[in-house]
């Protein structure tokens, strides 16, 4: 029997997440056409409806575990469901997104399976007989390549870094529905979920990030940044300085503490560029810096810089983008 790589197909708001396609691609590269079967698993309430969305991609088997009790992520319930499937399918490798869910579920699964795990992987390559994974250290101040010793492997992939899998390859996938029986004693109960981000672009998956620092001066100061982000279909981020000053929620913080982002365009507004912030955004493709202080360190890493007051510059930019996109 051929080996199986299992991809955890994460979804949100009734859609597959982009990182699911990136995890699929990571699995495909690791498989290297070596006769490995790639399977995907959908877990959730009515998750089976997404099997169709997956069917066009290079996936041989789609496993569906659906139950009303799986509507919200519950660490214990999801681990139970995924570990049961792993017991039946015996995957040699499991790929997940390095998301809030994946970061929580993957290490628990790794411990359950006595497996090694490589987290936050940004590239996968084949080298001779080995699969080599690249991942950041110190939030991107350095990078390491790692390999597994023994199986199974657990891998989480950082959003926005590995190109998504392309449609095509296999005409049909087998869809297998699995019964879900909740664990007999659930010690964790999800009481409430407040979707503060519904309708917004996730910061780590955003193609464009408009980020504010101490220079925004207040929570109201983020408004012009939000307008620009909305126009560009991007997300708003912040520096530690802005978060510590209480201008915005810590969920927006970009840096070595906080989130690492790698968008196509990063627009830093009123951010001086402390080392710990640079670690969280230096891998962005194009960096634009707007700052009153021409000596600000952020200009040393920026592709384009505008020396000026962000409250003047950002609305002007928004206007120019509006014209360009019209």
């Amino acid at each position: 029997m051929s080996e199986t790589y299992l991809v955890f197909a994460e979804h949100r708001g009734g859609k597959l997440r982009q990182v699911t396609l990136e995890a699929l691609q990571a699995a495909a590269v690791a498989a290297d056409d070596g006769g490995v079967r790639i399977a995907a698993v959908l877990i959730g309430h009515n998750a089976g409806a997404l099997a169709e969305a997956l069917a066009g991609y290079p996936v041989s088997d789609i496993h569906v575990i659906e139950d009303a009790s799986l509507e919200h992520y519950n660490p214990e319930a999801y681990l139970h469901a995924l570990a049961e499937l792993c017991g039946a399918v015996r995957p040699v490798a499991v790929f997940l997104g390095h998301t809030a869910l994946g970061r929580d579920l993957a290490p628990a699964l790794a411990a359950r399976l006595k497996a090694g795990q490589l987290s936050d992987v940004i590239a996968v390559e084949r080298s001779g007989d080995e699969t080599v994974f690249t991942r950041p250290l110190y939030a991107g101040k350095a990078f390491e390549k790692k390999v597994f010793r023994g199986t199974p492997w657990i891998v989480t992939v950082r959003p926005n870094n590995i190109p998504p899998a392309a449609v095509g390859g296999l005409a049909t996938a087998n869809v297998a529905k699995h019964d879900y029986t909740a664990p007999s004693s659930l010690r964790t109960i999800v009481k409430d979920v407040v979707r503060q981000t519904s309708g917004k672009v996730d910061l780590t998956e955003a193609k464009i990030v408009v980020s504010g620092g101490r220079g925004v001066k207040s929570s109201d100061g983020f408004k012009p940044l939000e307008e620009l982000a909305e126009l560009l279909g991007g997300a708003v981020g912040a520096s530690r300085g802005a978060c510590d000053a209480g201008y915005c929620d810590y969920a927006l913080q970009i840096g070595q503490t906080g989130k690492v982002v790698t968008p196509e365009i990063y627009i830093a507004c009123g951010i001086s560029g402390a080392i710990q912030h640079l670690a969280g955004m230096s891998q962005s493709r194009i960096i634009i810096a707007i700052n009153k202080d021409p000596e600000a360190p952020i200009f040393k890493v920026a592709d384009y810089g505008i020396v000026g007051d962000l409250f003047e510059v950002v609305p002007l930019l928004t206007e120019e983008f509006r014209k360009a996109l019209a």
Binding site: A142, E144, K146, I287, K300, Y304, I306, V307
Partner: peptide, 28 residues
């Protein structure tokens, strides 16, 4: 361990780019 490092490197150093000139509307 179940994993092993095979190499370690620093990212390429980013070069400072272009500081735009002119009045702010022109720069934008």
């Amino acid at each position: 361990g179940r994993t092993a490092r095979t190499s370690l490197s620093l990212p390429p150093v980013r070069q400072a780019g272009l500081i735009l000139q002119g009045d702010l509307p022109q720069q934008a």
